[in-house]
């Protein structure tokens, strides 16, 4: 396809913007966990995949979609809590890279477990919200809904982090873990809560993902690397950075995909990412160390 500065190009830009909301929400959970616990969950996208299956089957089992989506949030929050207690906590004091690798084992496990439980077929939840036509442009309603919910989710997290004791403690523990007991804070509990919130955000994203994409066990590999890239580009741990990076990256994908093949949109985004990091290794909004 050719690239012209016309209405289709504008449509691509706006679709990129809508995609960015979802990507930013996905990046948010990972960013929170990394910023606070200093652990990278390589299996983060697989947690989202688990949530997608959860929402899918809850809905197919007869629950209203909104209830199914809420269940998805709880499911992934619990899964993330278990991940922290069973897998991360035992290696928390060892070399950081072990923490990254150990979640890589979980990635393989979750993929295989999903294959065993749900098969390799692509599954579609079968909800069509149709599309919205403005001028000659067409936007999927599911995507618009995702964008709005993602913004609301991010706002809710921001309020939680700045307005509550638990949220303040989550921000504080990222800055000085050793003295937390002097504040009467049990660090283990804060880490567990942080993990569960990170999982909850992944679960929220999962509920939106099922409206936009088919589910299959390997879906995590499709968008997992993208989420890591957004987090690093924004500055790991910086939530505003992750937000901005999501917008930058999604524009590359949307415009690249509309002009060329989808893979090239992604490939260009990754190339841009690598080059950008060479100029700003701490990320767009990361604190300079």
């Amino acid at each position: 396809m050719d690239c012209h500065l016309d209405i289709f190009f504008l449509e691509a830009l706006l679709n990129g913007l809508l995609l960015a909301g979802l990507l930013a929400l996905l990046a948010l959970g990972l960013n929170l966990v990394f910023g606070v616990i200093d652990v990278v969950w390589i299996c983060y996208a697989e947690l989202v995949m688990v949530g997608m299956y959860g929402v899918h089957y809850a809905y197919k089992g007869g629950l209203p979609f909104i209830v199914a989506a809420a269940l998805g949030i709880v499911l992934v929050a619990v899964a993330a809590g278990l991940l922290h207690v069973l897998v991360i906590r035992p290696v928390l004091e060892t070399a950081p890279i072990n923490q990254l690798l150990v979640t890589g084992g979980v990635l393989f496990f979750l993929q295989a477990a999903a294959t065993m439980a749900f098969g390799v077929e692509f599954k579609n939840i079968g909800i069509s919200l149709g599309s919205l036509n403005v001028l000659d442009m067409s936007f999927s309603r599911a995507r618009i809904l995702s964008f709005v919910v993602a913004l609301v989710g991010m706002l809710a997290l921001w309020l939680f982090l700045t307005r509550t004791y638990m949220g303040t403690a989550i921000r504080a523990i990222a800055q000085d873990r050793q003295i937390m007991p002097l504040m009467g804070v049990d660090s283990r509990r804060i880490y567990l809560v942080t993990s569960a919130i990170g999982g909850g955000l992944a679960g929220l994203a999962a509920g939106l993902m099922v409206l936009n994409y088919d589910i299959y066990p390997q879906i995590g590999l499709q968008f997992g690397p993208l989420i890591f890239m957004i987090c690093v580009l924004g500055g790991l741990g910086s939530m505003i950075g992750g937000f901005v990076a999501a917008f930058v990256i999604s524009q590359f994908i949307a415009v690249g995909s509309s002009c060329f093949h989808t893979e090239w949109g992604y490939a260009v985004a990754f190339l841009f990412f690598m080059i950008a990091i060479f100029f700003r290794p701490q990320g767009l909004f990361g604190a300079k160390s």
Partner: peptide
């Protein structure tokens, strides 16, 4: 897929 599942667990 059982072998991959066990494989992943063993790695952990």
């Amino acid at each position: 897929a059982l072998d991959s599942a066990i494989y992943g667990l063993l790695l952990v």
